[in-house]
């Protein structure tokens, strides 16, 4: 084998590995589809004592679907990159934050939205950084602003609506942009 051929092979394989990206837009759209209506439902049923119940339901449903999809996706691509691993750990940590926020807020008679949005902002911002996808970086910032509004500006009644708006703008829209990019 010629020496220049060796370099060509190495370069070609590096390029192949860069193509081995998982279709992560699914997770953003799935969680967006679950979380935006959950916020609106909580606002509409705010006078009913069971309104908070939408959150654990959404968490369990989203978690199960994400796991099934993740397994299928790993089989489809047959490869895992370091970006995938960092993404799994980031969103794994986010799930802990989500569960903690709900349990902590409910047991202390607090609204959980500011905390959930803060954790979502961090995970979305990191995802944007590691995947070098600018809309998620801006999405993370937008969701962070939503967390500040819930935490310090508006009364609790409006938190579910701010939550849904922040998730839609900072999560669903970048998710749709990523989906478009994945299908190009």
């Amino acid at each position: 084998m010629e020496t220049t051929k060796s370099l060509e092979i190495i370069e070609a394989m590096m390029s192949e590995s860069r193509k081995s990206l998982h279709r992560n837009s699914f997770y953003f759209l799935l969680w967006g589809i679950l979380l935006v209506p959950a916020g609106i439902a909580e606002y509409l049923f705010r006078d009913m004592s069971f309104a908070w119940f939408v959150w654990p339901v959404v968490g369990v449903v989203g978690g199960i679907i994400s796991m099934i999809y993740g397994n299928r996706e790993a089989k489809r691509t047959g490869v895992q990159t370091s970006t995938d691993r960092i993404t799994y750990f980031t969103w794994g940590a986010f799930l802990f934050g989500l569960a903690f926020s709900i349990v902590y807020a409910v047991s202390n008679n607090m609204m959980p939205h500011a905390l959930i949005l803060a954790f979502t902002a961090v995970a979305t911002f990191i995802s944007g950084g590691i995947s070098k996808f600018q809309p998620f970086i801006w999405g993370g910032i937008l969701i962070g602003i939503g967390a500040i509004i819930c935490g310090f500006v508006l009364p609790g009644t409006y938190h579910p609506l701010v939550f849904s708006a922040a998730i839609f703008l900072g999560y669903v829209i970048p998710g749709l942009q990523l989906r478009k990019k994945e299908h190009e």
């Binding site: 084998m1 060796s6 092979i9 394989m13 895992q80 990159t81």
Partner: peptide, 28 residues
């Protein structure tokens, strides 16, 4: 490593965490 297929396998694996047999057939 101075063999085309072995170098291809190693170069691909150096850039990912792991890959299965099917994926290696596809890329090489």
């Amino acid at each position: 490593l101075h063999q085309e297929l072995r170098l291809s396998i190693m170069s691909f694996l150096a850039n990912v965490e792991w890959a299965n047999f099917k994926k290696l057939i596809e890329v090489t």
